[in-house]
Design a protein around this nucleic acid. Structure first.
Lengths: 469, 469
DNA sequence: GGGTATTTGTCCGTATGTATG
DNA sequence: TCATACATACGGACAAATACC
């Protein structure tokens, strides 16, 4: 049942019921009221318009008699299908346009930012969600802490401590709707004129995000350990955005030595910060988990950012950051001007998910799942002569393949495309497209495809690339 | 089962098993591992740490013998309750601090921004949520459109058209996690140096939000029709934030004439915008619903902002704005740098809520509920000699009471406080606290209390104020 | 799952204003 | 001036369908 906003002129010569009649008729003709849709009851509409019910009745009756409406006793009035073609054009066209652009007809897509579509812990989620909505804690529906629910923040602290070696208390945690939102908050917190250094190549979306927010962003090149400290120092940046645990897209793990160099850079001047994006640290298939950079920090210089989007589902918009105490204090001043961005229900779900061990179980499952795919690709890569080296193995959900000498990314991409395979050339992650390439390489993400599909895709890729260079 | 991140020194003199033992022991003492919590299996931990299983076994055995752990055959190791008080201080203390500041021991609180705590359509929500999580549409867990799901935006378009007279297509809608987030987006879209005019008194949170984002914000005074157009013109602002349907806190409805004046102001120079905050338009108890300002706009100058926080629940962080076509186009450029902020599941729930008529039914129920409270307060106010006039009746969920001559807001607040009643003096909504007051008045919000409580509170208030001035 | 309160279309009596004779 | 008829608008009573607990 819709609410109708009918402009009535009491003083006009046209009778009220006719004004109502005209309005509804035109709405139906304009398809603003769709066939089958229910209309307000005569009582509701009369109340709303401050007219008598019989006035509305009269209008409805006439509409019924003319076939615009159908009356169902004791249920309501419903719009009829007029089987005519008024104004179909506009809205429908825009609609189809929005739906179209999606797929480009690839048989296999090695998407790098995807997740396993069947990985969502649907049953656990449903169970917890039901449980939460069952207990009628009316607090759940009032506005919560803008920093995030205390209990969730405590659960995150505990998780981060054990799984990532992050040292924090709940006061330092800020929960927000996605990494981009947290970056927006950070932008406000650090000040808009903060110059930010980023690795190159890097996660473009964060780059764009900072740019849109008006920051000066400087790309700093990497050696095999990660961002070059000397270049960082020379850049004059006040903050450096890094991915020490598993750099995107290069996949390198930053060794301790380099971490300490970065920490030294940060502590050298007050107000310098390292922004650690720990986007896919959950997935590590071999060797010890690498503790987060934040855990080494003795000087309150690291801002740690993590997310549940990668490990649970991208559509679940929950990320968190760990602020150094000084920034956390500044946040409490500014943060009260921005209310929470994550539904309290969802926060509660995640909290229980963490606390009751669902998350650990889920992660174990996903890790096994991804490890299978990861190993499968590596096995297939062994025979692939067109690939000279593999980077970023043993972690995350993508690999970087360095092409053998003479092969170009463009050629590799094109050959793959002809075979119906989408691969992701490395150079598109360079911020400066003109930048000299260190190597020719393509990225393969393996999260979205199942093992059967991956096998097929790898075989097809090998064939496609066999004649390369 | 937790993941443990134990820093092992292979070269150190301390045996490996002792390092493990020490770490876990200290974790339990620090309460980072809570009693009853399960530990990783010896196999899992040994794999993780790349040490032999017997090393882990040795460490666990010692911990069991010392009572830190309990071993349950065929299940795992569990932390024991030590009944001791290590390090309880820090975390616990902060915790209680966060929980404390809440209530100040008022018997009755006429909170102005609350909602009825029992108003949440729990059953419908649960039903829809169950239904959605039931159908396994894996799309639901992938990252969605940053502008909001198309279907939801269409549902919003239809709702806004019928209920608010807003003219828009889905392309113009942007869905985001709360009004504040949308204001952040707007800030990026309009540019940070956009000077923004706001009504005075106004909704302080929006004011603070703009300020935090670095905008110059100018307060423009109001007459009985709302924001003064002359003063607005003179302010040099490029955007004006207004609440035409039911101004907060004054409660006035902006008459057509003033609306047209504002629209004229906006169209006079390109790049001028009116930001219409339609925060509680759903609640109108008498007379025709007032169409939104956006519906009168012929020149693409109005940015309409609405929310589900007020009508459904504040903790549900879903708001939307309607951008003029030109801005919508600009948004599509910039917006792709900021991913969605609302969970796709929640978007789907709201969509069905709108489309299947739950929302209308819910609104009707809430309107009836609030109307009851509204009428009850008005009835009680009739006998209250200390109140000379009531503003903002017939809409929203709060009233503004002008005090009789000679009474001050401070006195009224204090007398109420002594009787255990929290009322909200008008002057605190003035942006410039030093500004001359037009009148002495207090706000009464009636959403959170039930009718019985309201009756009691009104009686108590009458007594408390009887001796005023 | 069953009972109750609410909402629904429908029918009907009434009041007002206007035009007609 | 009155009676009559008609169009318009208002509100109460009823039984069935529905929503809510």
């Amino acid at each position: 049942m819709k609410e109708l906003l009918i402009p009535l002129e009491h003083k006009a010569k046209i009778p009220l019921y006719e004004q109502i009649y005209n309005y509804i008729k035109s709405e139906i003709q304009k398809k603003m009221i769709l066939p089958g849709e229910s209309l307000p009851s005569s009582r509701a509409l009369s109340r709303q318009l401050s007219v008598s019910r019989s006035t509305v009745d009269l209008a409805y009756e006439q509409l019924v008699s003319e076939g615009y409406l159908e009356s169902v006793p004791c249920k309501g009035y419903y719009a009829c299908d007029m089987e005519e073609l008024f104004h179909l054009g506009e809205v429908k066209e825009i609609k189809s346009k929005a739906f179209e652009r999606k797929k480009e007809n690839y048989l296999y897509d090695f998407a790098v930012n995807g997740i396993d579509p069947n990985g969502f812990p649907q049953n656990a989620w449903k169970k917890i969600s039901k449980q939460i909505l069952g207990e009628d804690d009316t607090n759940l529906f009032l506005l919560g802490d803008s920093q995030g629910e205390w209990e969730l923040r405590e659960a995150i602290v505990s998780y981060l401590h054990h799984a990532r070696g992050v040292e924090a208390v709940a006061d330092q945690i800020v929960v927000g709707a996605g990494n981009d939102y947290l970056l927006m908050l950070l932008s406000v917190l650090l000040g808009r004129d903060t110059r930010i250094a980023m690795e190159s190549p890097t996660y473009k979306s964060a780059w764009n995000c900072f740019k849109s927010l008006g920051h000066e962003v400087i790309s700093v090149s990497m050696d095999e350990s990660g961002m070059r400290p000397g270049e960082l120092e020379a850049s004059g940046a006040q903050a450096a955005y890094v991915m020490p645990s598993h750099q995107f897209p290069m996949g390198m793990v930053m060794p301790i030595k380099r971490r300490l160099q970065l920490l030294n850079w940060a502590k050298k001047r007050p107000g310098r910060y390292l922004i650690e994006d720990d986007y896919d640290s959950e997935f590590r298939y071999k060797g010890k988990p690498v503790p987060a950079l934040q855990g080494y920090d003795q000087d309150e210089t690291v801002i740690y950012i993590g997310t549940f989007s990668k490990a649970i589902a991208p559509s679940i918009r929950i990320s968190y950051m760990v602020l150094p105490q000084s920034l956390a204090q500044a946040y409490r001043e500014i943060g009260k001007n921005f209310s929470a961005t994550v539904s309290r229900v969802d926060q509660k779900i995640i909290e229980i998910f963490l606390r009751e061990g669902y998350f650990e179980r889920h992660l174990n499952r996903m890790r096994a799942l991804y490890k299978g795919k990861h190993d499968l690709i590596l096995k297939n890569l062994k025979d692939m002569t067109s690939v000279s080296r593999v980077f970023g193995e043993n972690a995350g959900v993508h690999l970087l393949l360095q092409l053998k000498k003479g092969a170009t990314e463009e050629k590799a991409e094109e050959l793959a495309k002809e075979a119906g395979i989408k691969v992701y050339p490395l150079h598109q992650y360079y911020v400066d497209q003109g930048q000299k390439r260190d190597m020719e390489a393509v990225l393969l993400g393996y999260a979205t495809m199942d093992e059967k599909l991956i096998s097929e895709a790898m075989e097809a890729l090998q064939n496609a690339w066999s004649g390369m260079a």
